[in-house]
Structures are given as structure tokens and as C-alpha cells.
Design a binder for these strands. Sequence first.
DNA 1: CGACTCGTTGAGCCAGATCAAGTGAAGTGG
DNA 2: CCACTTCACTTGATCTGGCTCAACGAGTCG
Lengths: 231, 231
Amino acid sequence: MNFCQACSIRNRAICADLDDTEIALLNRIGRRKNLSAGESLLWEGDQAVFVANVVTGMLKLSTTTGDGREQILGLSYPSDFLGRPYGERTPYDAQALTETTVCVFRRVDFERFAHEHPRLERKLLERTLGELDRSRRWMLLLGRMSAEERLATLLLEISERLAASTCGGDASPLDVFELPVSRQQIADILGLTIETVSRQFTRLREEEIIGMNGRRDVEVLRRDLLEAIVG
Amino acid sequence: MNFCQACSIRNRAICADLDDTEIALLNRIGRRKNLSAGESLLWEGDQAVFVANVVTGMLKLSTTTGDGREQILGLSYPSDFLGRPYGERTPYDAQALTETTVCVFRRVDFERFAHEHPRLERKLLERTLGELDRSRRWMLLLGRMSAEERLATLLLEISERLAASTCGGDASPLDVFELPVSRQQIADILGLTIETVSRQFTRLREEEIIGMNGRRDVEVLRRDLLEAIVG
DNA sequence: CGACTCGTTGAGCCAGATCAAGTGAAGTGG
DNA sequence: CCACTTCACTTGATCTGGCTCAACGAGTCG
């Protein structure tokens, strides 16, 4: 059987440009894998044995200092690529935040395939360049923004990426959405503590810039103000 | 004439895998450009018209918040690639820190060439993946490290990268080197203020972990302690 | 020489960290 | 069905690392 043909990210992931023959070949070297929330796919420092594509669900990529302080490097949404081709070691932990399905390849198989199919390699290059831009924007956040600016930036980014990953095209950002992460994880994404994050949520709620239903359901009431905070 | 044949980074830049015929073609679409210290090559937000390779010298890549706070995203050493292929806009400013020579290509020319020469594209992919790893490691620094840890990390990184970029291979890190950047720029790299950076230098000097001759000449006296600070 | 740039040092302040309860919803089990 | 725990978060009180503001070298250039 051939997963790829029915794959929900067939037209958005790095395999988008491949024709049916190529897809059939790629299908043969990959396999689906389901992860439950909390389960890890990659461990920082391990031999880089696998690479993967996110099909459904969401993961966090993170790294840790020697004494246990965590920094989340990014969230991976459907169609995102995971792992470290052309490298010895996996540079980060990857852990599922929700029920997640990924499409896994042995790194050597994937590299051989990419080698023979430059269109795939180009897609991967484009994606990697995009990731690099995104991670550099995050450096500005971590290096120079206040707690309020950081949370506002994250809320806007999540609302945009969730729209993009659910609706396929470049849909307009969601005004109502569920946070895919806990307060502690938000703190680890933003380089803050959980208490500071909680206080900033309270503030945004008090100023009626956002509304919340329970701990994870966010409604953006004043996108303009949120954008003004980011600057 | 053909710059490439005599190019000092011929074997380390993304053109390393190309044969003589390919190099000759690449040579035809590129040109050398000299920058004096302080001169800018790319401006954030501009149409991405050029891409380039650093031949000699050093540049900083930076971005700025709406209200003028700067964050340096990285330093570019000889053989590093600059610019944003497959993208509309340049995502950062690039400014020479020293006398610098770069090898510039019009983006469209470069993309066409890359398209026809997958080996080049693969080199660029490998390099971009390496850059992504590096920028993610910097996120841990910016999000979770103390001022002391940040400066120690930077000093170690500079001493390693200067060794690599001067001696070609994987030479051992330099124990005596010249800082390529001012105190203000170090602050902008580390997400700190100039005063904090200055105080940390003083501390490392007092503890005889480093020695300094003037403002820019650093000698690493106790690499072990520097590494211990980083953890 | 003054004017300027770059860096260092000091004094005080504040955003966010740390430490310490408190709350409320969801599960557990008796 | 109600105590009892647990987990995830919130809130309050206090502390502090790094920021801000300000003064002061030490080179450097005209």
C-alpha cells in the first residue's frame, strides 16, 4: 500500500514536487509512526539515524543546558521536516505535544534518495532556509524583547501557524484557538519563567486584549493591540 | 580572468565540489566586491537581489526591533554564505566589521546556476543546516544563560572559528586572538548591554581566566575554567 | 590642545526570577 | 457521593542580575 497518495500533507511537505513514480519510491523507504503526547522521537546528541516529516499533530524541539535549564527551539507543525540530514548527531530533542503521526525515514535511505532526486533536495533547502529565518527572528525575541512583547509575539505566531497548518493555504490567522502547550512550555519557548508567563496572560486578559476559556482556549479580541505590543 | 582558481576559500566554500568547467561558469556570473569596515552589503527587508560568499574579512548579520534595539544574529567568516536564495526579502542586515572581500552573485543568476548544478545546491543545503544548528544553539544562550556564561561561550566560539577560518582545516582553537568586534557589538551579539559586557570582561581578567592587551587582544589563560563556566 | 570615540566604573533601580502560598478542576478510592 | 490527592496554574512577597543613568579615563584624530 502507499501512504503517500492519501497523505494529508502531500502537497505541502518536501515531497510536494515529486511525481507519482518518485512518490512510490519514497513511500517504500518511509514508514508511518504514531506518537502519543509526551513521547519523544529524537534525543539531542544521539546518532542521527532518522529523519521525519510531521503528518498530523505537533512536536516541540528543545535543548538543555548542563544543569537542566530547557530552551524550546521551535514547534513543529504538519508538513514540517525533522532531524539532521548530512550530520552525525541530532542537534535537539523532539517530543510530541499531542497525538502525532510522523513519516519516518532512515537517514541514510533519505540521503540516498535526496541525492538522486534534486527536486526533493531543493524543497528541503527551501524549507531549511525558512527555518533559519524563523529561528533568527526568535533570536531577536530572546535577546531583546520584554516579557509582554514575547508573549504577544508567540500568540500571534501560533494563531498564524495553526491557520496555515489546518487550512492548507495561506488562510487568515485564527482568532479562536487552543494553545498546543502548557504554561511551563510557553515559558521554555519564550525564555521566561512560568510565573512571568502567567502574569502576562493575566494582564492581557485584564486589558481585554485576549479572552480565555479555561487554561488553553484563547480568543484574540484585539489583534490590533497585540500587534501594537509587538511593534 | 578567473578569480575562482586563485580563491583562498576555493576548497571550503560551497563551490568546493565543483569541477573546473563549472567553476569557470560560476566565475562568469560572480564578481568580487571589496567592503571597508562599517560598509553594509545587505539591508533587512530589501528585495533579495544579491547573494554572496565571504572571501576574506568578517561581517555581522543583524536585525532590529521597531524602536531600534539591535540583535546580532551571527558573524560571517571566510567561506560563509550570505543572503537569501529562494526568498523575496533579505531577512537581515549584513555589515562588514573589517576590510572584507566578498564574491557577489545576482540572486537569479545564482539560483539558475544552482538549479543546474545539484552538487552546489547540496553544499548550500549542508551549510544552511549547519547555520541552523548554530543559530539554535545561540537560542539556548539568549534564552537561558547568565551574562558570564554568555561571554565565556562567545570567547570560546570566536577562538574556535578564527582558528578554523585562518588555518583552513580543523585547527585547534587559538589561545591568543583579536576580537573582531567592539564592546557594543559583543553586547548586541549576547543580548546584553555594553556595561554588563565590560564588567564581565573585568571579572574574567581579575580571575585571571583571560588576559588582555588593549581593548581587543585577548589571551585565553585558563581554557578549562572558561569551559567550566559554559558548563 | 580640545573634541570625540570607546571603554570602564559606580550608584541606584526595576523587570523578571525566586520562593511560597493559594486556587480550582480533574481524578481516585473508600 | 464526598474527602483526599494531584496537577496545572495563579497570585503575592521578596530578591537580584542586569539595566539605566552618570561620571570618568584613555586613546586618537584634527
